[in-house]
């Protein structure tokens, strides 16, 4: 299988502050990858580079063989941590907007999911609760038949019931053969779904392995995470 993500000697700095330093890794398609690391580890910068939001970096980044740009953006379905929809849009407007730009967007499925999620079609985004906005954004991403899904903290700041709902929606609607790169702090809740782990800390790649290899020793990913990053909290 070809490499869906290929990163070579990636470095990124903001002035004198180095956020990513000579990071290299590859992933084959068809996996669920956990992007793990504490706050300020460089996860968000890496995601922004992969999604084409940051373009001034050194090194090489390829998404399914394409540099971040128009083609790669049409292959990637990105769920940012923030609410990115325009406040004037209603749910139907948001669906139509995404359908206009992505040929792989399944509008019929989106309309159906809106009913399943009990999202009023004509309610404006600005009047929706945070939970409704998150549902809508998740729906917009998961109704695409994308090659790569990049989900930035999809379960951040939601209650356990909502976490299960989000996770189920992601797994149920993920097209066969697609890849998911998911950043999260809630390792315990999701570690069983990961095929591979990418651990980033202090701007460097600390671990890249399959879950099968990591858990051979009987340790969980959560245990490994604590081992790797506990040094940051021990003074």
């Amino acid at each position: 299988m070809s490499q869906i993500i290929s990163v070579r000697n990636l470095s990124k700095s903001y002035g004198k502050h180095q956020v990513l330093s000579d990071v290299s890794f590859d992933f084959e398609g068809g996996q669920i990858i956990g992007l793990l690391g504490p706050n300020g580890s460089g996860k968000t910068s890496l995601i922004k580079i992969l999604t084409g939001l940051i373009n001034d970096y050194s090194g090489e980044v390829l998404i399914d063989g394409n540099k971040p740009g128009k083609v790669s953006k049409s292959l990637v379905a990105f769920l940012p941590e923030k609410t990115y929809l325009a406040s004037w849009m209603n749910a139907d407007d948001a669906v139509n907007y995404i359908a206009d730009f992505y040929d792989d967007f399944d509008k019929v499925k989106a309309m159906h999911m809106m009913d399943v999620f009990q999202l009023p079609h004509k309610q404006k985004v600005k009047t929706m609760s945070k939970g409704m906005q998150e549902k809508l954004q998740l729906l917009l991403v998961m109704c695409r038949n994308a090659k790569l899904y990049i989900l930035d903290e999809p379960m951040g700041g939601v209650d356990p019931a909502a976490r299960d709902f989000i996770l189920e929606t992601i797994l149920k609607n993920r097209p066969e053969g697609s890849t998911i790169l998911m950043s999260t702090h809630l390792i315990q809740d999701v570690e069983e779904i990961f095929d591979s782990i990418l651990m980033i800390g202090r701007g460097s790649l600390l671990m890249k392995d399959t879950v099968a290899n990591i858990t051979k020793s009987g340790k969980t990913i959560n245990d490994i995470f604590k081992e790797v990053f506990s040094v940051d909290w021990n003074f």
């Binding site: 999604t51 084409g52 740009g69 128009k70 953006k73 049409s74 990105f78 990115y84 325009a86 730009f101």
Partner: peptide, 18 residues
Amino acid sequence: FKSLFSPQGYLSFTLPVS
């Protein structure tokens, strides 16, 4: 400003356009 440099920018700048 709103469509490009507020959180809405996450949508605008990840569209498959230059």
